[in-house]
Computed example of a mutant assay.
Amino acid sequence: MSTHSLSLLPISCHRNPNDPASPLLLSLHKNGLFSSLIGQKLSIQSSHSRLVVSTRYRSTVATVLLSLPTAKPERTSSEKVPKWSARAIKSFSMAELEARKLKYPNTGTEALLMGILVEGTSLAAKFLRANGITLFKVREETVNLLGKSDLYFFSPEHPPLTEPAQRALDWAVDEKIKSGEEGEITTSHLLLGIWAEEESAGHKILATLGFNDDQAKELAKSETDLSF
Rank of each mutant, 00 (worst) to 15 (best):
K30I: 06
N212T: 01
E175M: 14
K148V: 09
P105M: 10
L151P: 00
L192E: 07
L97Q: 02
T208A: 15
F154K: 14
L146T: 07
L26V: 15
L26Y: 06
L161P: 04
F228L: 12
S12M: 12
K204G: 01
T162H: 04
S22K: 00
L161G: 01
R15I: 00
I185L: 05
S67A: 12
T187N: 07
D170F: 11
A165C: 04
D150N: 10
F211R: 00
K83R: 15
V173I: 14
A88W: 08
A95D: 05
T134N: 06
I38W: 12
P159L: 06
R139H: 08
I133P: 06
L135S: 03
G193Q: 10
V52T: 12
S46W: 05
K221I: 00
P17L: 10
S22R: 01
A201S: 13
S155K: 03
K137C: 01
T134M: 09
F211W: 09
E79M: 05
I205S: 02
M94W: 01
S35P: 03
E74F: 11
G32W: 08
A86Q: 02
L151K: 10
T121S: 12
K101I: 05
I133G: 01
D170E: 12
L113N: 00
G193Y: 04
N144A: 14
P159R: 02
S36C: 03
E141Y: 08
S85A: 13
V143W: 04
L135G: 03
K80A: 14
K83S: 11
K83Q: 15
I44N: 02
D150V: 03
G108I: 07
L128C: 10
S46T: 11
K148D: 02
S35E: 14
A130S: 15
T121R: 10
V143D: 03
S27G: 02
D213F: 11
V138E: 06
I194K: 01
N31M: 14
T224Q: 14
V52H: 06
S77V: 12
